[in-house]
Amino acid sequence: MIANTLTVILVLAGLVFFAAGTAGLLRFPDVYSRLHALTKADNVGLGLVILGLMFQAGGPADILKLILIWVLVLAAGTTAAHMVAQRTWTHGEFESDR
């Protein structure tokens, strides 16, 4: 019961971050601030959801798999954000209107 409650709370908190990331993606004025908004969804949103789902996991293997997914998404999100920012910095924000 406690596990279920914790799961619900953590997943809901994660959803808030996803909503915030999407709102930032839509509302913020330039690439850098959008990037800032959506890495929160990547890192914290998925992190909270995974933390919540861990309480329902069947065994240590499942928990490890969930942690691995989170680590991979962290790495992917960091790399992608870094590289997109760098490319925008060197090539200009609107170079791509092609």
């Binding site: 790495a75 992917a76 960091t78 790399t79 870094h82 590289m83 760098q86």
Partner: peptide, 8 residues
């Protein structure tokens, strides 16, 4: 360009 890509 930087350590992030090789690390990933």
């Amino acid at each position: 360009p930087g350590p992030i890509l090789p690390g990933t």
